[in-house]
Design a binder for these strands. Structure first.
Length: 573
DNA sequence: GCCGTTTTCGGCCCGACTGTTTTCAGTCG
């Protein structure tokens, strides 16, 4: 279901992990990692390339090209299968725990036969790690913390992974004769940042053809439940998909019910009760007569309850019902309001695509303007220099207006150091059209230090946007512990925008922080933080997150005209 | 395993932090 590029990326990444676990050449492991990333982010579909085309992908040579060919013809890569046999899958799973890399994972397996997270937990609780070389009390504590973080994320998967599966299934089921409507509902329709399982709804008179089709899809690994009204399957990737087939005339009620959230539905049902009505997945009914009033569309149901239609991204019982009753729902930003992307990378630093490719892909998104913001030198691994940056600027200037008239902004993503200072002095920063500044390290400073650090960055006259403000990685790392109310206040005071980073592991700021920040009058920038042309479309998830934070286009600087945006980007007094 | 202003070998993003050690290995961004 994901495109072949992603399948191969996952396989090669797995191979790299297996090499690292079994103590193979670290540089060889790294080669596979680099190739995996390059293939995953490559603009062209590998199934459309020939063997020669594979080697045009950066970091892919003869050996890896052969492995791609093998995968496309046989569906697997034999050396990966071989290595899998010598290392239990659970050992690799251990590596997903923060602080646990290949060496420690293998040591745990070799010495203590630990090959799953549960076994590790058990061993920690029985103090069996104490005698292991390199493991101490603090390590145990960190492991427990890491495991609890993972378990809090549970089996939920990232938004785009669920969306890819759902859209594919919807496309398949929509083709079946008798389908009068088909869409996804649940937390996916509400665009929550992680998804537990996917709910698909179909409107049709007969359910059987749809149930059978779902059970028979190539990526269906097992059927969990199979009935008249509902079928549940698990995909080969472990994602649960529930399909419900509704009679066409109860489409609206079903969609409203299965979209949720539960808390939102409780509110709507309470309103129904007050109107002497009953709302269920089958429709809106008169309590006394039992007669159905309406069920065809969501709009009709909300209307009969005295409400305007409420966008799914707002249905979290965060005041949307009350706002709807007052007629004060926000006019939410949409993807077509976005005029440009203000945080993107190229292969000059850690991006995968050359400048020209990124710009062409951005122009194809229909943007009026686009900012290139490669990393600055304080992220030492990026090896940035003033000279490289100035040379890039010349190329950017030369490409200005050359793609569908799209205007280019030359910017940078600065690193906010431990004391809140950034890479370059004022005179050099003044040469950029836009400076995004973000935290990339020293996450464990005190709350006071972190707060001061972010506020100092806001106070820098050249910093226009704070990138991924909390620096969380969903399911991997919590956000930093800063006093964000103080930061939001500083952003509003200094005219610094906060980013809504659309990277699926970040979605940072998240919806709840956005709601809080908005109350301070802060402006936002919804950015993809693309490191490849294939990342540009993730903008949609940033916009959805902005919607979940109740933002309108006035709140978001990259919906503004270039003139208005440039005024905002001018150095602060 | 990939790559080339270093060109068929010999490097490979670099530095810092952490917890363990008592001088460093492992992990991370």
């Amino acid at each position: 279901m994901p495109r072949a590029n992603e399948e191969i990326e996952a396989l090669l990444q797995e191979y790299a992990d297996l090499i690292a676990i079994t103590g193979g050449d670290a540089f060889r492991a790294r080669s596979y990692e680099k190739a995996a990333r390059a293939i995953g982010g490559y603009h062209a579909d590998v199934t459309k390339l020939d063997a020669k085309g594979f080697q045009e992908i950066p970091n892919v040579g003869k050996s890896i090209a052969d492995k791609i060919t093998e995968y496309l013809t046989t569906g697997q890569i034999s050396v990966v299968e071989e290595r899998r046999r010598s290392v239990p899958a659970g050992v690799r799973e251990l590596m997903t725990i923060p602080m646990l890399g290949p060496k420690k994972a293998m040591l745990l397996y070799d010495e203590l036969d630990i090959a799953s997270v549960d076994q590790l937990l058990d061993a920690i609780h029985h103090e069996r790690l104490r005698d292991l070389k390199g493991f101490g009390e603090k390590t145990e504590e960190n492991l427990l913390h890491g495991i609890s973080l993972m378990q809090k994320a549970g089996n939920r998967i990232l938004l785009n992974a669920a969306m890819d599966s759902a859209e594919q299934i919807v496309a398949e089921l929509s083709r079946i004769k008798g389908c009068e409507g088909c869409t996804y509902a649940g937390s996916l329709r509400r665009m929550r940042e992680t998804i537990g399982d996917v709910d698909i709804l179909v409107a049709a008179e007969k359910s059987a053809p749809f149930m059978e089709a779902l059970a028979g899809l190539p990526y269906t690994a097992e059927t969990i439940a199979h009935g008249d009204k509902k079928t549940s399957i698990r995909t080969t990737r472990g994602l649960q998909v529930d399909l419900r087939v509704l009679p066409p005339d109860s489409w609206g009620a079903g969609l409203q019910y299965f979209t949720g959230s539960k808390a939102h539905n409780i509110r709507t049902r309470e309103i129904a009760v007050r109107h002497k009505l009953k709302l269920s997945e089958y429709g809106l009914f008169d309590v006394e007569t039992g007669k159905k009033i309406t069920s065809g569309t969501e709009e009709e149901i909300y209307e009969r309850l005295g409400l305007p239609w409420i966008p799914p991204t707002l249905r979290e019982d965060r005041g949307e019902i009350a706002a709807g009753l007052r007629g004060e729902l926000p006019d939410l930003v949409t993807e077509k309001d976005i005029r440009g992307d203000l945080h993107t990378h190229t292969d000059l630093t850690d991006g995968l695509a050359p400048l020209e490719d990124m710009i062409a892909a951005a122009a194809a998104c229909g943007y009026a303007y686009y900012a290139i913001t490669d990393h600055a030198p304080d992220l030492a691994m990026q090896r940035m220099t003033r000279e490289k940056m100035l040379a890039q600027r010349e190329r950017v200037r030369a490409l200005d207006r050359k793609h569908r008239g799209m205007r280019l902004l030359h910017g940078t993503e600065l690193n906010i150091g431990p004391e809140g200072d950034v890479d370059w002095p004022a005179d050099f920063l003044a040469g950029f059209d836009i400076c995004v500044a973000s935290i990339h390290s020293h996450f464990n400073q005190s709350r006071r230090a972190l707060t001061r650090r972010l506020i100092r960055a806001c106070e820098n006259p050249y910093v226009a946007v704070i990138g991924h403000p909390t620096t969380r990685r969903i399911g991997k790392r919590p956000g930093i512990d800063a006093d964000f109310d103080a930061v939001f206040e500083a952003c509003a005071r200094t005219g610094t925008a906060l980013e809504i980073n659309a990277h699926l592991e970040r979605l940072d700021l998240g919806d709840e922080d956005i709601l809080r920040a908005k109350r301070y009058g802060v402006k936002f920038a919804v950015d993809s933080d693309s490191h490849s042309t294939t990342h540009l479309p993730y903008m949609r998830y940033g916009v959805a997150t902005a919607q979940r934070g109740w933002l309108t286009k006035d709140d978001i600087i990259n919906t503004w005209t270039l003139t208005k945006l440039r005024a905002f980007l001018r150095p602060k007094p």
